[in-house]
């Protein structure tokens, strides 16, 4: 099977994820979409690893997973805190960072 198809799949997943981040308001869903984009990247990395015949891509995929896990921990904690204080998980309500 041609490994290039995996790249198409990765691009498709990434687009779905990006669209989800841009369109959905619920922070949890946005979060899941980000995970989707990260995993799309992982898929691309692994594919390239296979294509080029070395392990660099796979190593980076592991890094990405670790970072994603860390991000989930921090991100969920923030979302939970915001939900507790504002009783909503909508990202549009949290627009306090502007000047």
């Amino acid at each position: 099977m041609n490994p290039v198809y995996y790249l198409y799949l990765a691009a498709l997943l990434f687009t779905i994820g990006a669209a989800g981040v841009l369109i959905r308001r619920n922070a949890i869903v946005v979060f899941m979409c980000i995970e989707l984009m990260l995993n799309a990247c992982n898929l691309a990395f692994v594919t390239f690893s296979r294509l080029h015949g070395n392990l660099d891509g796979q190593i980076i995929a592991f890094f990405t997973m670790v970072v994603a896990a860390a991000e989930v921990v921090v991100g969920l904690a923030i979302i939970v805190t915001i939900f507790r204080t504002r009783h909503t998980a909508s990202v549009d309500d949290a627009s306090l960072m502007k000047l």
């Binding site: 990006a18 841009l22 946005v30 990202v91 549009d92 627009s95």
Partner: peptide
């Protein structure tokens, strides 16, 4: 230029994309 900084996460994300 400041108007671009509206504080909405999704708008920032759109700009990034």
């Amino acid at each position: 230029l400041r108007r671009l900084q509206n504080g909405f996460v999704r708008s920032y994300a759109a700009q990034m994309v």
